[in-house]
Design a protein around this nucleic acid. Structure first.
Lengths: 209, 209, 209, 209
DNA sequence: AATGAATGAGGATTCATTCAT
DNA sequence: AATGAATGAATCCTCATTCAT
């Protein structure tokens, strides 16, 4: 199966929708990086636009040149992160044909990504609780679940997984992964491999298996 | 095994630590109920103290008579909810001696509680993302995990569960439960029983079992 | 010259003008004492009625039983202090016939009183700057100046003081006294005697004398 | 003796420490002028930031663009006034070599300054009673006293003033001056010259001289 | 005489956003 | 593209005062 085409990402634009120069793209990216960091550290509401631009040593005008509002800015961060995470997952399983291995590789790569993007975990978790942001999050998660569902279905067809609701299984996997990521990756700073092994074992065999 | 004594909850006090009259206790509870509802609906930061008291038709001073700050108020809500959830879990498993059944009953009862207290789910989720509130949440979750760990250990001793890190197993269960609660209980409004069955099956047997 | 009759102090009343029981008088005095202390320590505005009653461990109702408002309460404190100071000055000079000695004794006794009532100094100073309270203060100071003026006039008649505006001299004396009290009595904690000697020397001879 | 160089005043900055444009400096000065006026008229606490900005017809944000807090704003006013007063005193005595004349010129010029800056007198008086502001005031007063002390010492060396504690003398002079300023300059609206003459006479000769 | 509870106007401060330059 | 300045609604919280009991 060929790797799916890279998701069509719209090229970065300013608040008025104009395409950006190279320098402009750098600024925009800088803002999003810094914003994600600060939002993760202190929360969305407690972080002011002022703080974000001050950290970069620029004026407030810059922010509103690139983003139409704080809310849109945050959404943009969420979207970009989801896109990036998905790309990484896809790349990780591209060469694997065994559906169960694909699930395992997906878990591993996801944990690796979350390890590298600590900030985003809290941001996702927060976003899901706010009506304004939840839709974007849900959509992204649905995509991720959809990916897993495909593998699970394949494995059910092959008779390697009991015949159950594939989506429920996929959701459960996502639940295990994200909770273990928070607990072991962030709170206890354990290695991706250790956590991934635990997650894979539990997801495949449960308590009794 | 006798039901454990109800945890000694300190009697409600006002912002200055004075004990409350019956009327006062009622007001305090009213505020917390309404506060939880509003925080869940619109978020902690977007909900103002003004809105909370306005909903009850009382003056702003009332709020600060009972709570020293909005932050403390929120913490109080979190603590009370955790205490209540735990009480319910304990009560549900009190008469069961089989450790694996205990885990199952715990899952069921937790989902039932979350179904009845929709508001609290989002609140917990949000709280865990904010440094100010996370400690309280983590502590409560640690207690819950500790409960599960005890059952799992027992079952490992009895040779009914493979010998693995009991805490990791417990954490995975919590992860499954909370993610399924969000997805199926809240977003899709399914029945507690259906979700509980799915959760139990996954937790006990995993994908392959 | 006979000692003037003790100033007719109206007997203490509650906020509605009713005469007080012995116990009531004690409470009232307690409140004023504590209020003066707190007002001096943190300022009039920054000190809340709540704090005053809390220090005495009583409810807010008590305060409003005895005083009709915070403002009136403060005025009452000022009046009582002025009355007390004057009584002490009068008593100190009662037996002295030499007008210049009388001025000296007045300076000494005033400094002694201020030493014993540190709180009141700041309160007076503050009150004089607020339009609401200044009239009471001015009136009290005018009385004090009037006392000195009488002695000075007498001394001028006797030819012992140069013929100048007696009030200006009296005011100057008051200025010296209060500034030296602040600087040496409070800020540097020197003895009443030392400060009094300095004040007397300066007031009698000036720089050149 | 050449006039000392004007004290190096740091150029005005906004609340975050950034240097200001010409327009910004004007605004900042405007705010301080208006603030001093209002604080003097109604007191520090009874005057709200809202009132200050409303008087200038600007938004509340303007205030916090230039000053980090109401407290800091007040301190800034105090500091600026003290600096200005000192500059005037220095300028007034620059060309005079006789130490006693210097004291006299200092008294005169100070009274003139206070006449022109009625607002500041009350502000100083108030500030000295509040722990938050007193340090700044005391420091300024210490500088003023130090100036006088120098002249007095010189005069003592020349044998023109009796050998006494020069600082006590200086403090007494300050006391006379400020009390007479309040009484005659403000309450009775007399001329600077008349008050200055009275003050000088008293300070040089005292009652008896 | 006294308390706990309530009121609600008002205070300092923040902050997303806009605008002139 | 970017800045400094400005806006003003909204926020949390305080506090003098009142009231029912």
């Amino acid at each position: 199966m060929p790797a799916p085409p890279a998701p069509h990402t719209t090229s970065p634009v300013d608040a008025a929708g104009r395409r950006l120069t190279t320098r402009g793209q750098k600024r925009r990216a800088q803002l999003m990086l810094e914003g994600a960091r600060l939002f993760a550290e202190r929360g969305y509401h407690p972080t002011s636009v002022q703080e974000i631009v001050a950290t970069l040593g620029v004026g407030k005008g810059v922010f509103y040149w690139y983003f139409s509002s704080k809310e849109e800015f945050f959404l943009e961060i969420l979207r970009a992160a989801q896109t990036d995470l998905r790309r990484r997952q896809q790349a990780a399983i591209a060469d694997e044909t065994d559906p169960i291995r694909r699930v395992e590789l997906g878990i591993e790569e996801s944990l690796r990504w979350f390890r590298e993007h600590r900030e985003m975990f809290n941001l996702f978790q927060f976003a899901i609780t706010q009506e304004k942001f939840a839709p974007v999050l849900r959509q992204g998660q649905q995509v991720a679940v959809g990916d897993v569902v495909r593998h699970v279905k394949e494995a059910i067809v092959e008779g390697r997984i009991r015949d159950q609701d594939p989506e429920l299984l996929a959701q459960a996997i996502v639940g295990v992964m994200s909770h273990l990521a928070r607990t072991y990756l962030y709170e206890r700073d354990e290695s991706v491999e250790a956590v991934a092994d635990g997650a894979k074992a539990f997801c495949l065999h449960g308590l009794l298996g």
